[in-house]
Simulated assay, not measured.
Amino acid sequence: MTSHQNIILFYDGNCGFCQWTVQFVLKHERNHDIFFAPLQGETARNTLSPNLTKKLDSVVVKGPSGIMTETEAVFFLLSYLKAPFSLLSIFKLIPLFVRNPIYRLIARNRHKLMKAPVSCHLPSLDERKRLLP
């Protein structure tokens, strides 16, 4: 497996809401620092503990300081987005014991919130270079 010291956003590849999130990050990121890998893929199997790749109930980010999940991962990603989205980081002031249960509620209902798309977004050449197996 190729070693990536970069940021990797791991997502549920079978989830429409998760696929939308990847597209959103691609569209609004400031630089091209983030790589993307499905939680069901080889990169996730080789990088993450099995409990993170089997439950599929959280976005997972591998960053310079380690593995992040739930709102910790979301706020980390927000710091890589253009304004005004990066300004949403202000909500990190909400205590973890409040924001993570809200995250879990959304995560449990994500399949109802947005269905998997019928057709796939065709990634650009640059985007394809950042999609990991």
Rank of each mutant, 00 (worst) to 15 (best):
G41V: 04
L88P: 02
D12H: 05
D12F: 02
H28E: 05
L77C: 06
V61Q: 08
P101W: 12
S119F: 11
Q40M: 04
A73S: 10
K115V: 04
T71S: 15
M68G: 01
N6H: 13
R30F: 03
P64M: 10
F85W: 15
L48R: 11
V25N: 04
L87F: 11
N14I: 13
F85Y: 15
P84G: 08
L26P: 01
S3R: 14
F36M: 05
N31F: 08
T47H: 04
V118W: 05
D12W: 00
L52S: 03
P123E: 03
N31W: 03
P84M: 09
T21L: 09
K55L: 13
Y11A: 03
P117H: 12
L81Q: 03
L125S: 15
I102T: 04
I106E: 11
T43H: 05
L88K: 06
G16D: 09
F35S: 03
F36W: 06
P84F: 01
T47D: 01
A107N: 01
L125N: 14
R45I: 04
E29F: 00
L56D: 00
C120R: 10
A83C: 02
R104L: 14
W20N: 14
K129D: 03
S3T: 12
N6G: 15
R104Y: 08
L48F: 05
L52P: 05
S119E: 14
P117E: 10
V22D: 06
I90K: 01
L122A: 13
V59K: 01
L96F: 12
P133T: 05
R104G: 10
A116D: 06
R110A: 08
C120T: 13
Y103L: 05
A73K: 06
R128S: 12
F10A: 09
V22R: 04
S3Y: 10
E72I: 04
I34R: 07
Y103P: 11
S124H: 08
R108N: 15
R104C: 10
C15N: 07
I90S: 00
